[in-house]
């Protein structure tokens, strides 16, 4: 029986462990001492709220941030942000960043020999609307090599950062694409023990929102910890 005066722990298997040696960078950076249980206080129940003033005109259209069109497969990525009780999370700040179509990040430490695209920065942000809905127009990111092990390649993914109703609903994760053969080989994706939880990070092809002769759409719903109306109420299972 969990103690409802303490911060709730994640459903077993649905979150990666900090120490996961197949992802080599975890070895020297993951804590080894026991994690301490935390009582719920007002501070954990609340979190920062961001306003529309943080969001610029083209911040959720990554294809419209430069003078020309970026190269690659134009896509819509969209979905809704939910709380654990199945209610939409309104006004959630959603931030994204990604590689370009060639698998290159516009970042000084990315030394992969693939071209940068002068028309693609690979960053966006938005706030969910009254129904918890968000959308980004972007370019499908390419896979890219990394130094974790010999011939290591990341599957195509978009990084997502979200703020929900309280600081404990904070989430940073990655959205993947359906049918990517690199997923079974990727230590980061496979750091999540539960197969169903891994599958929930994969977007779905959405022909209803795809536009003929223009772009494909991928739908991805995101569930954040907590409840909008009564955050972390007593007695929640």
């Amino acid at each position: 029986m969990p103690d409802s005066s303490m911060v709730e722990l994640a459903v077993p298997g649905t979150q990666p462990e900090y120490h996961f040696p197949p992802y080599v960078s975890t070895i020297a950076r993951s804590p080894r001492m026991p994690l301490v249980l935390l009582p719920r206080t007002q501070m954990e129940r609340n979190g920062p709220v961001f306003g529309q003033g943080l969001i610029g005109e083209h911040d959720n259209d990554l294809t419209a941030q430069h003078a020309g069109n970026p190269i690659g497969e134009r896509i819509l990525v969209h979905g809704r942000v939910w709380d654990e009780g199945g209610r939409p999370v309104r006004g959630a700040l959603v931030e994204v960043w990604q590689a370009n179509a060639a698998g290159r990040y516009r970042h000084k430490v990315d030394t992969y020999d693939a071209p940068l695209d002068p028309n693609f920065a690979g960053a966006g942000r938005t706030l969910t609307d009254e129904s918890g809905y968000y959308w980004f127009k972007t370019i499908k990111p390419g896979p890219y090599p990394w130094g974790n092990h010999h011939n290591a390649w990341r599957p195509s993914h978009i990084h997502f950062s979200l703020f929900g109703s309280g600081i404990l609903s904070r989430l940073v994760t990655q959205m993947y694409f359906p049918g990517d053969p690199l997923q079974p080989l990727d230590p980061i994706f496979n750091s999540i023990p539960d197969a169903a939880a891994r599958t929930r990070l994969i977007s779905q092809l959405d022909m209803d929102r795809s536009e003929s002769n223009y772009m494909l759409a991928y739908k991805w719903d995101i569930v954040l910890r907590g409840h909008v109306d009564t955050p972390f109420e007593e007695g929640h299972p």
């Binding site: 990084h159 999540i192 569930v223």
Partner: peptide, 27 residues
């Protein structure tokens, strides 16, 4: 519309080495 089924929160993944692209503006 609300869907009252209890849902499991999404799994976390690392910010990786390139997070500045998307997150440093706020800092």
């Amino acid at each position: 519309m609300s869907d009252n089924s209890v849902r499991i929160p999404a799994s976390s993944q690392t910010v990786g080495p390139y997070f500045r692209i998307g997150l440093e503006y706020l800092a």
